[in-house]
Design a binder for these strands. Structure first.
Lengths: 208, 208
DNA sequence: CGCACTATCGATCACTGATAACTTATCATC
DNA sequence: GATGATAAGTTATCAGTGATCGATAGTGCG
């Protein structure tokens, strides 16, 4: 009976940080396909080529995996917003383009966006991950606020409280992205038409 | 040893539809406190005073409980929007007031709003519940669209696609409500200032 | 060789949503 | 009152989940 236990093939190829990346790759693939909640740690582990408990050598919880992906996605958004803001002449066209950077990101990375801004609280996500996705989101907001403030300095913004206008604009952008993500099967008008209408509406409402 | 089995106290008080309401009350309470995802069927059953499997005599799945709450929330919002729309003269003031009806509902009934508009998809929620929350949401949107169309008929709306403008306005409203609910600890400006700024921005963007 | 350390695994825990089979309360009918 | 049918609730159980624990294979070093 003491057969030499046909040991499952160990896969020690991942040395140090490589395994971590493999796990993140597997998780991102699965999250994108099925949504964060519908993916189990065993599925992630299988795709990564390791056992399920091995995940916990690299991430404290499943939420931490999602949080890591989220933070990385937001770094991308922050960079894009920053790039769009630097070369930003205070014209209505550049204003609309800055708004579109945000919308495009949300629609391109719906999972990251969901994790950052649409996940229910109380589910322990924000808390368990030390609010790191939240901080990453705040970074993006800060960049956005600087862009809006640039327009405000030129005297072209409506309203006299630039922070309030920034938050209001952000809310306006978030609403469109969040609804398009969460209610994708709603009978929306053609997407480009809707985005153009929305961006134009926000521009008219925010600029003099 | 064949002690007469200290039978757990049966609780047959719920006759027919009463139990259903008790379950919904318990579920709404728990969902509000901890979020839909963090509440288990056993917790709902305990608060409702029945065993966990007894839930399934009234609801096919846990998602169906949330769906029922969702539909009811939509019905309340629909009624309020309808009431506000009937007496609506096409002035900027009444326009802003109509927008505030939506925002006020969301902030007064954050739990209902969360269940209605902020539940995560991908967990099979909309699908498993035969799209009933979706239909209820369409009802609300229809009322909102009629109000906006009323303004459009007066020739005071910007843009030439009233449906696109309606969807855009809805997105703008949803964004503010959703963010105020989901990120209550964000460093927002004073709430009334933010709402006033937002409503004014949407009004300027939507009306000529 | 022997030792320590790291990376990994099998087994397992408490809990989840859901189902099956059984028991009990109620009620119309004899 | 006794009877069978039905509705309602129960216990017991299932497969699957996230997470933990102790044991072990592999590696580097003396």
């Amino acid at each position: 009976m003491q057969s030499p236990k046909p040991r499952s093939p160990r896969k020690p190829k991942g040395q140090g940080a490589e395994r971590r990346e493999e796990i993140l790759d597997a998780a991102l693939t699965l999250f994108s396909q099925k949504g964060v909640h519908a993916v189990s740690t065993r599925q992630i582990a299988e795709l990564a080529g390791i056992s399920q408990p091995a995940l916990y050598a690299y991430f404290a919880t499943k939420d931490h995996i999602a949080a890591e992906l989220c933070v990385r996605a937001f770094a991308i958004l922050r960079q894009r917003m920053s790039d769009a803001g630097v070369t930003c002449q205070p014209t209505p066209q550049t204003f609309e383009r800055a708004l579109r950077v945000y919308i495009d990101f949300g629609l391109e990375e719906p999972n990251a966006y969901r994790v950052a801004f649409m996940l229910e609280k109380g589910a322990g996500f924000i808390e368990q991950t030390d609010g790191r996705p939240m901080e990453a989101g705040l970074d993006v907001f800060q960049v956005f606020h600087e862009i809006v403030s640039g327009f405000h300095a030129q005297g072209v913004m409506a309203g006299d409280d630039p922070l309030a206008v920034t938050q209001s604009l952000w809310a306006g952008l978030h609403g469109l992205v969040a609804l398009l993500i969460a209610r994708a099967d709603f009978p929306w008008v053609e997407r480009e038409t809707l985005i153009a209408t929305h961006v134009a509406m926000l521009r008219r409402g925010a600029l003099k």
